[in-house]
Design a binder for these strands. Structure first.
Lengths: 159, 159
DNA sequence: CGTGAAAGTCACCTAGT
DNA sequence: ACTAGGTGACTTTCACG
C-alpha cells in the first residue's frame, strides 16, 4: 500500500493540480501538465495504487452545516493500551469529531471538534469525555480561524 | 456563499456518500441515494452554490511523499494584528505546513506539519520560527497516529 | 513512457408528465 | 420530483511508436 514510488516532476505537477481541485477532468489535468489524457490517467492510477493518493474527499463547510464552533480538546488519560484504543474509538464515534491525533507528550490525544454551540461543546466535554474514568484531564481551546496548508509535496520538490 | 440552506435527509445522504468518495459519478451517487440523476445533480449544485460543499480535495499520504514525521507546533507570539497576519502567512508558506489554526488561549497558533526527518523538523522550528522576534515560544509535539473523523453532518442528523 | 483512435459512458440541457 | 431524448465531452482501453 505504501510503496516508495518514484515520482518525477510531472507526477508532482499532477499532485499539485489535484490538491487544488480534485474534481478537474482528466483531460484538463493532462492538458495542464502537458501530456496525453491516457498517460495522465496511468500516472494517477499508479499513484493511487502506490498509496500516494489515498482518496478524494469532499470538503464541507462546518458553519454551513450548523457547526460554527470549532475547538481543540487536549486529553490526558491512563496509558494502558486497551484503554487508549477504546477511548480513541469512542472519540472518533462522536459526530462532532473532525480529526483525532495520538500524541507524544504530556497530553495523549488531541481532537478537533466542530460543535453546534457552546452548550454542545460543554456537553461533549463533560458527558462524553471527563465522565470516563480513564480520562484524567480535558482542556478545551477554541479555534478562532483555520487555514489549510498548500499542496503537500515531497521534500525538495521544485517543478 | 454561506447561506443557511435547508438540507433534507436525501441531501445528508449525498453528503455522507461524497465525503467517503468524492469521485463517484453522479449516476452512481443518484442510484445510491435512490433518486434520479438529474435531481441528484441539482441537489449537489445547490449545495455547492449554497456554500455547504466547498470543494473537492485530494487526500495524499505524507509518508508516501517522504514526510513521515508529523508534529504539532504550538506558538506564542506578540498580539499586534499586523504581526500575527504576517506570521500566519509565513507559517502557511512553509512546505511542511499542513494546517494552521489561530487559537483562543495561552497559545496563539497551532500548526500541523509533516517533516522529512527530525532534522528537518528541528530546522523548521529553529530557523523559520523561533528566530522571528515576534515569536516568544514554540513547543513541538510529535504525532504518533492520526485518524480522520467520520463524515461531518449537521447536528441532529439521522438519516 | 508516450500517443491517437474508438467505444462506451457520462454530464448537462431541454421539455414534458 | 421523475422521465426521456439528444449533444458534446469525457473516461478508459488498446494497438502502436
Amino acid at each position: 500500500m505504501a510503496d516508495n514510488l518514484r515520482l518525477d516532476s510531472t507526477d508532482l505537477e499532477i499532485l499539485r493540480v489535484l490538491q487544488n481541485d480534485a474534481r478537474i477532468t482528466n483531460r484538463e489535468l493532462a492538458a495542464t501538465v502537458g501530456i496525453a489524457a491516457s498517460t495522465c490517467l496511468d500516472r494517477v492510477n499508479r499513484m493511487r495504487e502506490g498509496g500516494v493518493i489515498l482518496g478524494y474527499r469532499l470538503q464541507v463547510s462546518p458553519e454551513a452545516l450548523g457547526r460554527p464552533i470549532q475547538a481543540f480538546l487536549t486529553i490526558r488519560a491512563q496509558h494502558r493500551r486497551e484503554l487508549l484504543a477504546s477511548l480513541a474509538e469512542h472519540i472518533r464515534s462522536q459526530p462532532e469529531t473532525r480529526a483525532l491525533y495520538h500524541l507524544a507528550g504530556r497530553d495523549d490525544f488531541l481532537v478537533l471538534v466542530a460543535a453546534e454551540s457552546v452548550a454542545d461543546l460543554q456537553r461533549l466535554v463533560i458527558d462524553e469525555l471527563t465522565c470516563r474514568p480513564e480520562i484524567t484531564q480535558v482542556q478545551t481551546t477554541l479555534v478562532f480561524q483555520e487555514w489549510e496548508g498548500g499542496p503537500l509535496l515531497p521534500p525538495g520538490a521544485r517543478a
